[in-house]
C-alpha cells in the first residue's frame, strides 16, 4: 500500500513530464509512417504483457515509431540527457499505444539497463503509466541493440493503472528502425508471439513475468546476433534473410517462388542444377547486395 501511495503521489510529476515530452517530440515534426510496404521512414514493432493482457504493436498495419534525444533541456537542472522512444498506431480506431520513454546519463549507442518512463493505452480508454524517478527503479529497460538507426530491447517492472488506481506489472520487447519496416527483424516477431503465449500462463507476479520475458529477450538477442552468411542460416526463410541482411534492390532480381522457401531448400535446388535456385543462391551469397 505504501508503494501504491508513493506511486500515486508521483503521477503528477510523471504526467507533467509526459506532456513536456509530447510537446518536445511534436516540435521535431511528425515521423514518417512505418508501412510494411515501404522501405523508408520509421517503423516499430512491440509486444507486451500488461495486467494479463497481451498487446502486440505489429498487428496494426500502420505503426508509427519515433526516437528522440534530448540533451538535457527537458529539465536543465538535472543536466541529464533523455533518450526516448515512442511507438504509436496512427489509425485512431485501432488499439492505440504509446511506449515512451527512458532516461539515461550514458551516451547514445550504449547498451545497458536504464530506468524508464512508460505510458500505454489499450484502445478502450484503459491506460497505464510508469516513471523512472523515485527511490525504487520500478520500471527498467534493457537495450541489447542501440545504434542511430536501430533499437531493440526489453522492459519490465511496475506501472500505475489509471483506471483501477492499482499497481500493475508489465514486461515486453520492442524494436525500432529509422530505415523502414524491412529493417524490423520479422523472424523475431515470431519469437515475440511465441514468448507472448508463454507469458499468457505467467501469473501477475513481476518476477515470474520478468523471467518469462528474459527468456524471450535471450531468444531475441540470439536472433539479433545471427550472421548474414547464407550457408550459416539454412533454416531461415529467404524473405526474412533478405529483410535482415540484404539491400532492398535484391528483391527485383530475386525469383519470387523462392522468397517463402528456406535457404536450405534453395541450396538443395541449386545443387540439383535448377537455374532459378542457382541465381537465388548467388544473390543471397553475393556481398555486394549486403546492407
Amino acid at each position: 500500500m505504501g508503494k501504491l501511495r508513493s506511486t500515486f503521489g508521483r503521477q503528477f510529476s510523471v504526467l507533467a513530464f509526459f506532456t513536456t515530452t509530447l510537446a518536445f517530440m511534436g516540435s521535431c515534426g511528425e515521423p514518417a509512417d512505418g508501412n510494411p510496404a515501404t522501405t523508408n521512414g520509421e517503423c516499430a514493432s512491440w509486444s507486451m504483457q500488461i495486467a494479463s493482457q497481451h498487446l502486440i504493436g505489429d498487428r496494426i498495419k500502420r505503426t508509427k515509431g519515433s526516437a528522440y534525444y534530448d540533451a538535457g533541456d527537458l529539465d536543465p537542472a538535472d543536466e541529464i540527457g533523455a533518450f526516448g522512444i515512442e511507438f504509436r498506431n496512427s489509425d485512431p480506431l485501432a488499439p492505440f499505444g504509446v511506449l515512451s520513454s527512458w532516461q539515461t546519463p550514458v551516451p547514445l549507442g550504449t547498451t545497458g539497463t536504464y530506468r524508464g518512463y512508460f505510458s500505454i493505452q489499450n484502445g478502450n480508454g484503459h491506460s497505464w503509466i510508469g516513471e523512472p524517478w523515485g527511490e525504487d527503479p520500478i520500471l527498467e529497460f534493457s537495450l541489447f541493440h542501440h545504434t542511430s538507426t536501430y533499437l531493440a530491447g526489453t522492459y519490465f517492472g511496475e506501472v500505475f493503472d489509471m483506471r483501477t488506481v492499482e499497481i500493475a506489472h508489465v514486461a515486453g520487447v520492442f524494436q525500432w528502425s529509422s530505415n523502414g519496416c524491412t529493417e524490423i527483424r520479422s523472424d523475431c516477431d515470431d519469437e515475440f508471439s511465441a514468448c507472448g503465449s508463454v507469458c499468457d500462463f505467467a501469473s501477475s507476479d513481476a518476477m515470474e513475468i520478468r523471467s518469462c520475458w528474459k527468456t524471450c529477450a535471450d531468444q531475441h538477442g540470439a536472433c539479433a546476433e545471427r550472421s548474414c552468411i547464407a550457408k550459416e542460416n539454412l533454416d531461415e526463410i529467404a524473405e526474412n534473410f533478405i529483410g535482415r541482411c540484404k539491400k532492398g534492390s535484391i528483391l527485383r532480381e530475386f525469383p519470387t517462388q523462392y522468397l517463402p522457401e528456406t535457404l536450405e531448400k534453395i541450396k538443395r535446388d541449386q545443387d540439383a542444377g535448377i537455374g532459378r535456385a542457382q541465381t537465388a543462391w548467388k544473390l543471397l551469397s553475393d556481398k555486394r547486395f549486403d546492407k
Binding site: L251, R252, E253, P255, Q257, L259, R276
Partner: peptide, 14 residues
C-alpha cells in the same frame, strides 16, 4: 535464357 518472375510480377531474363 533463364526466365523467372520477381515479386513485382516482372519477367526477369538472363
Amino acid at each position: 535464357a533463364l526466365q523467372f518472375e520477381n515479386q513485382y510480377g516482372e519477367e526477369v531474363v538472363w
